[in-house]
Design a protein around this nucleic acid. Structure first.
Lengths: 348, 348
DNA sequence: GGTTACCTTTGGATCGTTCCAATTACCCAG
DNA sequence: CTGGGTAATTGGAACGATCCAAAGGTAACC
C-alpha cells in the first residue's frame, strides 16, 4: 500500500514553481503554451511537471477565468439506443472541442427533469442540450436553468410559451414529413386501413408525426377511424402490451405507422402474440432507424434519422452559440429518409 | 485542446449579502442549513435568494472545501443498450447521492480511452467508474488517472498488472458460470456440435465466457472443433457479417453460445441470410438480457444481468469507497441467470 | 552615459465559496 | 455594576488557478 503522494494532497502550481525555482505565474504560462516564456525555462518547468505528476485543476481555472468547460446533456430515455447513439455523438464532438459532458437522464419524468437540471446547473455548464421529458413545460425548465445558460432543444418542443424560450436553439427532426412518407408508402403498397400507433399526444414530436400520417391519409382521400389511434408510452414493452387494442374496433387496420422504432419493434412482438406476423399479414413502419431496425426479423421499414450524426450536430449548434451568444436563435429541421425493408409488406 | 466560454454575470453570495444587509458568511450558513443562524435572518436571506435568482456555485465550494461532487463514467460502447441501461442506473444512484455524472464514451478505442480519462481527471471527479475498452492496459489507465482517484472497474479486467491496480474495486459478471449454464442447456436440448461465437479474446470477459463454454463441453465429454470459435467485434453488424464462417468447416455446428446479446441478434440475422432460421434449425444463446432480447423474433435465450441494477451497484461501490478510502479493495461477482426463450430450440 | 526597447519574469489581487477565530449583543446571576 | 455565558454574526484568510501592471535584465542606439 505505498502511494507516492499522501491521499488528498494534490500537486499545485506552487509545488511545481517551488520545485524548479520559478514563480507560479511562469508555470501557468508554460501550461498554457504562452510564447512569452524562455525555451530553457519552459523545458525545465515541463520536466518538473512530469516529475511530480501534476494534473491541471480545470475547476480552479474556470473559477478565475469565469469560463466553463462542460456541457450538460439531459435525455429523456438513455436506455433507448436512439439516445445512446445520440449521446455518443454529442460526447464525441464536445470532447474534440475540449468540453466534458455532464450527463442527466430523466426517464420521461418531469419532476426528475427538474431535479436533474437544477443539480447540473450548479456545476456551471457552459450550455445545455435537452431532449425534454414528455409533457414538460417551458416554464419549469426555465425556472431550473435560468436565462443565462444557452440551451439547445432536441427532438421535442416544450409546452407553454415564454419570451426567453424563443432564444433557445432547436434541432428537430422532420417528423411530419417522415410519417407522411411512411404513410404514402403503405398506401402505395395497397393498404387503406392504416393505424397510427404509440406515443402520447402531449409530446410535440408525437403530434407532428401523427399530423404527417393524417396529412397523407387525407391527401389520398382515406378515412381514419378514431380507434386507429393507439397511445402508449414510447417503449417496446408498453407498445407490445398495447398491440391488442388495434383489433378491438370493428374495422381492423391492415397496417400501422408507429411513433418510433422502439414502439414498432414492440408492436411486432405484440402482433406475434395476437397470432399475426408483421411483414406478412400486417405492415409496420417505425421512426429513427436505430441499429436493430435493419437487424430485426422482419427487418423494419423506418425513417432514418442518423442519431449519432444528430448528436454531433446538436453539439455543434451549442458550440456555435457559445462562440456567438448574440446570434439569432436558429431552428434546424433535420431531414429524414424513408428506408424500405421487409416489415412494410403489401396488402395481401 | 482548450476551450473557454464566457459566462454571463452571475449572482454571488456577496450580492445576496448586500441585498439584505448581512455578511457573506451568514448567507453561506443559511445555504448550508446551519442551525446557528437566527430564524428571522434565515427567512430574510431565503427571500433574497429567491428574489435575485441565486444559483449555487458548486465548483467554487468544491475548490475551497477540497471535495468533489462528480463521478466520471467511462464506457466502451454507449450505443449498446446494455451500457445505456447501465449508465441510467449509475446516474440515478449518483443523483440521489448528490453527485453528477461526467460522461465519457471510448468506442472500444484505447487511444480515445486515454484521452477521455485524462480530460475527465482534470475536472477532478471524486472517482471513476470504468468499463474498459477492449485490449486496454492497466498501465495506460493508471498513467491517465493517477493513483489518488478511486476507480471501480466494471465488466472487464485490464491487461497487465500493477500494484496500484490491485487497490481498485471491481464489479464483474459471473461470465464463466453464465456461458456454462447456457452450454449445458444447449446440451440438454440435444445439441452436440456447439460453437462459441463473437467477441475478441483480448477482453477478459470474452475469455471467461469462452472458458465457461469449454468447461461445460468438457464436462459432457464433447469435442470442440477449432473452427467453432469465431471471433468478431461485439456489435450486431460485425456479428451478422461473421455468421457464414460458422458453416465453412466440415463439421457444421447446430448451435452457438454467443458472447453477448448484440452478437446473438446479429448472428440470428446472419443465419437468416445463410438460409437458416434461429430457433428452428439452429439454436442460439446470448448474454446480457437487454430489453430487446425478450422482444426479438424468435425471442432470445440469454443470461440475465440486470444492467440497470448493475449500474446502481457500481455507483454504490464507488460511494462506499469515497466514504471509506482505506477499506480493502472489493471484488463483486454479480450472479447471472439463464432465461430460456425460443431461440434455443432442441436439436431437430 | 543615458534613453529606449524588448524579452522574460513576477508579486499581488482576484474568481465565489468555506473555515475560523473574533466580535457583538443580550441576558442573568452575583 | 460587573462578569460570564449563550446566541448570532462577521471579517479575513484560504482553495488553485489567471490576470495585470510593474520590474529586472540585456542590448542597441544616439
Amino acid at each position: 500500500m505505498e502511494s507516492q503522494t499522501p491521499v488528498g494532497r494534490k500537486i499545485t502550481l506552487n509545488d511545481i514553481a517551488a520545485g524548479c525555482g520559478v514563480s507560479r505565474a511562469t508555470v501557468s504560462l508554460v501550461l498554457r503554451g504562452s510564447p512569452l516564456v524562455n525555451k530553457l525555462t519552459r523545458s525545465r518547468v515541463e520536466e518538473e511537471l512530469r516529475r511530480q505528476g501534476y494534473v491541471y485543476n480545470r475547476a480552479a481555472a474556470n473559477l478565475r477565468r469565469r469560463t466553463s468547460s462542460s456541457i450538460a446533456l439531459v435525455l429523456n430515455e438513455l436506455a433507448n439506443p436512439f439516445f445512446g447513439e445520440f449521446a455518443a455523438g454529442v460526447d464525441e464532438t464536445l470532447g474534440e472541442a475540449g468540453f466534458v459532458t455532464l450527463l442527466g437522464n430523466t426517464s420521461e419524468s418531469g419532476a426528475r427533469q427538474r431535479a436533474v437540471l437544477s443539480s447540473l446547473v450548479e456545476h456551471g455548464p457552459g450550455g445545455i442540450i435537452l431532449s425534454p421529458a414528455e409533457g414538460s413545460e417551458a416554464r419549469d425548465v426555465l425556472a431550473a436553468v435560468g436565462s443565462h445558460t444557452p440551451v439547445v432543444l432536441f427532438n421535442r418542443e416544450l409546452g407553454g410559451t415564454l419570451p426567453e424560450y424563443a432564444h433557445w436553439d432547436r434541432l428537430m427532426l422532420d417528423n411530419q414529413r417522415g410519417t407522411c412518407l411512411a404513410t404514402e408508402h403503405l398506401i402505395a403498397q395497397g393498404h387503406r386501413k392504416i393505424a397510427f400507433f404509440g406515443g402520447h399526444d402531449d409530446a410535440s414530436s408525437t403530434r407532428e408525426r401523427h399530423a404527417g400520417y393524417l396529412q397523407a391519409m387525407q391527401a389520398a382521400g382515406l378515412a381514419v377511424a378514431p380507434h386507429w389511434r393507439i397511445q402508449s408510452t414510447p417503449t417496446r414493452m408498453a407498445a407490445a402490451r398495447a398491440a391488442p387494442a388495434l383489433f378491438e374496433g370493428e374495422t381492423t387496420p391492415t397496417a400501422a405507422v408507429c411513433y418510433n422504432d422502439a414502439v414498432a419493434l414492440g408492436l411486432m412482438l405484440g402482433l406475434h402474440h395476437c397470432g399475426r406476423q408483421a411483414g406478412r399479414d400486417f405492415a409496420v413502419t417505425g421512426f429513427d432507424d436505430i441499429a436493430e431496425a435493419s437487424m430485426s426479423m422482419p427487418s423494419l421499414t423506418t425513417l432514418s434519422t442518423a442519431p449519432r450524426l444528430r448528436g454531433r450536430q446538436a453539439a455543434h449548434l451549442l458550440l456555435a452559440r457559445l462562440r456567438d451568444p448574440l446570434a439569432p436563435a436558429s431552428t434546424t429541421i433535420a431531414p429524414v429518409e424513408l428506408v424500405v425493408r421487409e416489415s412494410s409488406c403489401s396488402l395481401s
